[in-house]
Design a protein around this nucleic acid. Structure first.
Lengths: 198, 198, 198, 198
DNA sequence: AATGAATGAGCTTTCATTCAT
DNA sequence: AATGAATGAAAGCTCATTCAT
């Protein structure tokens, strides 16, 4: 990412791509549509991204990094594992609420990850970081005696699963899921599954 | 569904489509590839399904109905809400194990559900039936005093979320998730979240 | 080449491609132009040839095979090496006269043979067969004592070089070369270089 | 050609273009590639040459003029028509040997000469000068009684044809032609075709 | 004199769909 | 009931050319 203008253009294109994909789906979003929405010519996209695949990779990375940054910043304020874990859950849901587009896009883009190799790569960029954050909190909680002694990775997986699973239901029908209540339910579930009675 | 031969052909095409989509992704699966794999001509697919969209709808329905039938049959054997719920969870995971292809296809096909309208339709065909099954079990459990008095729909959502969330992680990296352990963890989580201490 | 219709279509497309390339050059002949001239849709070309490269390969092969067939048929009538060799030369020039398009196309297509590998392949399909025909005649002539004892391959190369070299000058300016005189001159040159005085 | 810097820049670009075209072919050599190889920006090429066509014209001229200068300088040393002619042949082959790139480029660029008009222009810049040089030598030889009394233009054409024809075979497969032997064979052929027995 | 971001026309290629057989 | 040749719209991508800096 050499020049400033390059960074700005790439950002602009990635953001426009997210909106377009969220609105119409990856399959129905040709580069020309992204260009049209961004008010630029088709060529610019190829100029900066080389291929549609590369653009999509950038879109996915952007979405995931943004969320990770948001969550990291939030949990950093938590004073102990219990609080951090609850903050992670709450923040995940509040981030959804204000960034629906991103999740519409990402669920859609799962369909663009076609090969086994790409899936593993996506996994490494997507789930592993989340599970690692959760894993660290859980491990710390267990060590400090705040949490029950459970399998760290598995517990991270299941907590993430609850969040993602709710997200998906919400994506397919926003009216079916009240994110606030969902957050509370997940918190409660985690509390009784993981927290030691104090 | 007029004749027998029609039913057989449609079944054959739908099954082949599932394999092809699971293997290469919806985006990379032209009708010609499905025809090739099925050993028939392209024309037949259009003849029976009218459009690729229609075929995809049939594929999705088939996958969801198969799973629903499997789960319904299993939970029917459960003698009480607790058992039924545990059976639902276990069966969901065991069904995953033996039908990976179906889940690879369905996650991929999410990307082909592009409009708001289609999403709602998919939701109605996919999540509502599952949540209804779960809802019934939960309601019964609460009424019989086996379960804590929780919001039925929300609880159904969260249980389904755990299952779906684990499924997704497993789809993107099978080696990251041990389905058997995952099933046990979900069961345990549900036990402590919903079951009354006996 | 399965069906009859396939053969006809491929022939039609290849022939049209030769005309188009001869007229406008490979660089300025998009598939759409070939389709337009043939009165078919662009898709058909891809349908039968897969790629433009494949079409070009077929064009080259067609041109070379046609010429080789023509020459082979002609020299078969020659009764002895001397006569065969003179027939080869005369026929090469008379074939040029009536098939200018083919030579315009082939000279143009040299520019589409870009890699070292493709060049060697072209060489094998183009020059080797000609040099082999000539080589056989020359070898026979030497053995029978009609020809001077010269290096067979080199002599074949030099005779082919005269023919090709004249062809190129003729392609770039038809009015600069009188093919009939050119043929006689090449014959005369070969006579004094190779034939034993009788 | 106004300033010195302009001349240097144009030379640099033309030389780089020759290398690039020889390596990858005209079709696969965008201006950006030439710019990259020359370590300059794309804009400069347009700045100095106006269009790609113009650059190509310059490339062709450069190649032909270089060769012509080389040959002219060599034959100037010849003391009589016979010697001059042999020097022309030998020098043509030795020039090939040390400038393969140029010939790879020129054969490739034939495909970029698409219109009848361009072909005539190329002819005038390429073959006519060579045939003129040869023609002058031959005419002088005939007048001085060293050569047989043959058609001057035709004889020039045939000698040039031998050289060019060998060159082409050598371009498509360097291992098929030994330039030194080729040169000797052409000399020998010319000797018996044109030289009077002394 | 030089850059390189931006353009957009034009290319090859893919593929759902149609339809004569 | 089935075929597969044919269509043509639409896609991704390339690249000569322009132009503000």
């Amino acid at each position: 990412m050499a020049s400033l203008i390059e960074k700005i253009r790439k950002d602009q294109i990635v953001n426009t791509a997210i909106s377009a994909i969220a609105a119409n789906g990856y399959v129905n979003t040709p580069l020309s549509e992204i260009a049209r929405r961004a008010g630029i010519s088709k060529g610019v996209i190829s100029y900066y991204f080389g291929s549609k695949d590369d653009l999509v990779r950038n879109v996915i990375d952007r979405i995931l990094q943004d969320e990770k940054a948001y969550l990291s910043e939030k949990i950093a304020r938590g004073e102990n594992p219990k609080e951090k874990l609850l903050v992670y859950i709450r923040s995940s849901f509040s981030y959804m609420e204000t960034n629906r587009q991103n999740f519409e896009a990402i669920v859609d883009l799962w369909g663009s990850i076609t090969t086994h190799e790409k899936k593993l790569d996506f996994n490494k960029r997507s789930y592993d970081p989340c599970r690692n954050i959760l894993g660290k909190i859980i491990r710390e909680g267990i060590e400090k005696g705040e949490f029950a002694d459970r399998d760290v990775r598995l517990t991270a997986s299941i907590i993430q699963a609850m969040i993602d699973g709710m997200m998906i239901q919400w994506i397919f029908d926003a009216s079916a899921i009240d994110l606030e209540k969902a957050s509370l339910a997940v918190e409660e579930s985690v509390r009784c599954y993981l927290f030691k009675k104090s």
